[in-house]
Design a protein around this nucleic acid. Structure first.
Lengths: 223, 223
DNA sequence: TGCGCCTGTAACCCGTCTGTCACCGCTCCG
DNA sequence: CGGAGCGGTGACAGACGGGTTACAGGCGCA
């Protein structure tokens, strides 16, 4: 779970990074807006924390640029008393905000809430019904069977489906979550990945039971 | 495993000391900052717990003084609502913090996590299965075989893997722990170091049995 | 100063993973 | 009927990452 933290205040940036690292997130840091965009283009991220006041590109501009390419959750940081900023930020597509000063505890709670809404909270169960994921080992175990080795993308896809076990996840959302692609276009990638994953986890890949095709997406059946 | 506890609140100090003693740690106590520094100079310690609010020398000053001489893990104690202090504390090199009030259980968990990160958690002994490390001599002994001389980096890598024996440790984490690198970066270093270590500890370095490649990292097999 | 060893860097091999294409079968609908 | 659209399948080439060899700079030490 990667979180990009952009803030020009080094102390605050390190505090946020520390808090998130402790909580088990992988943290990418950026000291200004331009660096944040570069970092996001290179590595993407599952969530972005943006200070509004940054030299060069402001948090607003960064948020706008990111939104043009991705639906990744964005949390803005603002100083108290400038609530007009929030209207602006939320209008640009930010998902949540915090007013400084805030406690690490609060930050963490809000970030978890955001990720949960996006369906990728790590605390989301790594097992449901007969399917149990092991993120560290990159394996999945079906109904006490043998552990099956998964690739990076297969793991990510299965994690997303598992986080929404029993419910259909749209192809668009899967594309965004697994590849970070903007919506539309690359259905073929998803088709292939589903196919490969089925080869590994389905008893009869031609008649899928676990990973079912649903209207406009896929869903994981866990009973 | 020695822990230095510095807090001017006698009740809290004794509670912490009691908790740690029960858990098997040797506890050194100090009632103020100056005493903490004296104690640390005399006896050193494997971990330091510092209250921020202390008469005379504050926790900040003690932390700074200790950091000037040692990389020992430092945990700061602060009261809720004054989290800005943490920015300062972490900036001075503290490794973790707790906001009062906290439960003994939490304290213990965090202290163990700190020691594990530093690679000296007693629950992660210097020997597991067939692998026994000697930190003082910079050697490792495999299954009662000959002691093998290790370099500084090899020792550090093996120590980290041993502390997580049987479980995959991600490349990112190893890079941070062995080199102190920040995020991502140089896989080549790790590749090389693993290769060199295998030459020393594996019967057949081309077919590693102990130091196995796992998804996104490495793991030590100890049976 | 010259000689080791340790560490970092580059270049190459090779197996796996991933993106892409071509084609199949099915359904929907004019 | 026939074509368009969609999902599933097989094949394949390039990208990627780990393993390996080779070599150069750094550092301690005689």
């Amino acid at each position: 779970m990667k979180v990009l933290v952009a803030d020009d205040d080094a102390d605050l940036r390190e505090l946020i990074a520390f808090t998130l690292t402790q909580a088990g997130y992988l943290v990418l840091k950026a000291a200004d807006g331009a660096a944040a965009l570069r970092r996001f283009a290179e590595d993407s991220a599952d969530l972005v924390v943006l200070d509004i006041n940054m030299p060069g590109l402001s948090g607003f501009q960064v948020c706008e640029a990111i939104r043009a390419r991705s639906r990744v959750p964005v949390m803005m940081l603002t100083v108290r008393g400038e609530e007009e900023d929030l209207v602006h930020a939320l209008g640009l597509g930010a998902d949540d905000y915090l007013t400084k000063p805030f406690s690490p505890r609060t930050l963490l709670a809000r970030i978890k809430a955001l990720l949960r809404r996006a369906g990728m909270e790590p605390a989301a169960p790594l097992a449901a019904g007969r399917v149990a994921l092991d993120l560290a080992e990159h394996t999945v175990r079906i109904a006490h069977g043998e552990a099956v080795q998964l690739t990076k993308l297969e793991l990510r896809l299965l994690q997303m489906l598992l986080a929404n076990a029993g419910h259909t996840v749209s192809s668009d959302r899967l594309l965004v979550q697994v590849w970070g692609h903007r919506s539309g276009g690359d259905r073929q990638l998803l088709k292939q990945l589903v196919h490969r994953l089925r080869q590994k986890i389905e008893a009869d890949p031609a008649a899928p039971v676990l990973l079912r095709t649903a209207a406009a997406g896929y869903k994981l059946i866990v009973d």
